[in-house]
Write a protein that binds this DNA or RNA. Structure first.
Lengths: 178, 178
DNA sequence: CCGGGTTGGTTTAGGCTTCAAAGATTGTGT
DNA sequence: ACACAATCTTTGAAGCCTAAACCAACCCGG
């Protein structure tokens, strides 16, 4: 969108005005808004194409992607908890998502021998077939959307985003581990 | 004493997982996953703090932010359509959001003279007061989360994200811009 | 064994989000 | 005037998402 260089907020009452102007933090804000815009733009397009071409959704795709990657490494699949941590979503969210995918025959559950609490999730054969098609398209879409950047720009962006990730995680970790 | 398998139990986001196992993957995909991880991380924290400190949500905050910025510039507020375009969400979404904010006395509607189709939305006095508090906190949070980057890094990241935005928009524009 | 703490998962209530279809109003061509 | 298209908003169905409460199974120390 059009960059709003004017954040004119002088409309505020006098009593709250003091809280309002800690100096100099505007460029962090602009950086964040631009980051958010980029992500929203790409994500919205991917959602739309997943729906249009495969009649599925991004969360479904993400869950299947997690399972697909896990299946090569370890046998038996992933537990719902592992999935929820990988996807950075809540526990209950994965419950419903898995239920829908299971109803469509794309994933299957089975208990882990020796621990009756956990539900191991795996792609079915149909699920693997479906995901292979979706995954190839998805990769091409991303390459298309970000292909306007040169390789050196992508490399630099990747590195800087890694630094940003570190910064956020560092700011989060103190209260994240009580 | 039961040596915990910490390697297997470590929390790994999707981007890290991709970098680990599979063979040749496109760097565009890794870039995208890292972008998504950064955004999700920040956004989740902001959501949690908005709830914790102000008992509100990010969509509510975003809508009020749009109104707040518009109020300085033009009189009368914004139409629901303008808001939905600014926020990059659907039309019907804004309807419900506005209804909830109106029920809480934070925004108010009024018809535009001469066109009975449109609903102009404005912050109430209470809404302006609330938003001023939230906005100040929000800005500080962002500065805190992204403060681990040096000014030069932020500048470079901002510029590269601008390039990325251009790339995505260029790939989208054929069917997206009527 | 048997309690208490921990971990894995589900449920519930409520809000967010989209798409598609429908209402309502305005503008336009004939 | 009248039909018709365009614009703005609302509604309804379905899915996504979270926090908090809850249940079930495991673990461990007496």
């Amino acid at each position: 969108m059009n960059a709003p260089d004017d954040l004119g907020a002088m409309v505020v009452d006098a009593e709250t005005a003091l809280a309002q102007s800690p100096p100099g933090h505007k460029d962090e804000l602009r950086l964040w808004l631009r980051l958010l815009t980029c992500t929203t733009l790409v994500e919205g397009e991917i959602r739309a194409r997943l729906r249009r071409d495969f009649d599925t959704t991004l969360p479904r795709f993400d869950l299947m992607a997690a399972l697909d990657r896990a299946q090569g490494g370890m046998n038996g699949g992933m537990t719902l908890g592992e999935i929820s941590r990988r996807m950075m979503v809540s526990n209950g969210n994965v419950t419903g998502l898995a239920a829908r995918l299971e109803a469509e025959g794309l994933v299957e559950r089975r208990a882990r021998p020796g621990d009756r609490r956990v539900q191991l999730l795996r792609l079915t054969a149909k699920g693997r077939r479906e995901f292979a098609r979706q995954s190839a398209a998805h990769e091409a879409w991303i390459a298309e959307l970000l292909g306007g950047l040169e390789a050196k720009e992508r490399e630099a962006l990747f590195r800087l985003l890694g630094r940003a990730k570190l910064s956020v995680r560092a700011a989060l970790s103190p209260e994240d581990t009580p």
